[in-house]
Amino acid sequence: MRQNDGMTLIVKTVTRISVWMILLYGIYIIFHGHLSPGGGFAGGVIIALAFLNVMLAYGRKFTSDWLNISFLHDVEAASATLFLIIGILGISIGGSFLANFLMKGELFALISSGTILPLNIVIGIKVGMSLFLVVWVLAGSKTVKGE
């Protein structure tokens, strides 16, 4: 099919530059989740949209060469496990499940608020990977009649 070859050269060139900025913005949103609006959910969706941008502009074949899809599966499953591990560490150190056992730090500093920052990062990875993989699978299913 024609669409699997991706879009025109203009779109590809713009995408090559803009994808990194979108990724950086997503990472910024994730890391400032405890200081400003945003957090793991919003940042994860931005990361998924960056990958989706590459998939729409360059086509599936290039993307599966560029990204290791089965590795993304592993990352997605591992991040869910990491959330549980942080929770169980809370039992052993803090006394209850998902207790905030790290240093609280200063109020408006970037490295502060204990386990909220690592949990934000874990959720961002989880949401981003799983949403990208859903679109990947949905776009890959050949459903058009006569294809």
């Binding site: 959330f83 998902l98 609280k104 608020s113 386990t115 909220i116 934000n120 959720i123």
Partner: peptide, 27 residues
């Protein structure tokens, strides 16, 4: 919690158990 964003402090500290459930449902 030490977080300036109070919504974030509820989602990931006071009610992190809910978020664990959300991660499970998404999975």
């Amino acid at each position: 919690t030490g977080a300036a964003n109070l919504v974030s402090s509820i989602v990931l500290d006071y009610r992190a158990y809910d978020t664990l459930g959300e991660v499970t449902v998404l999975f």
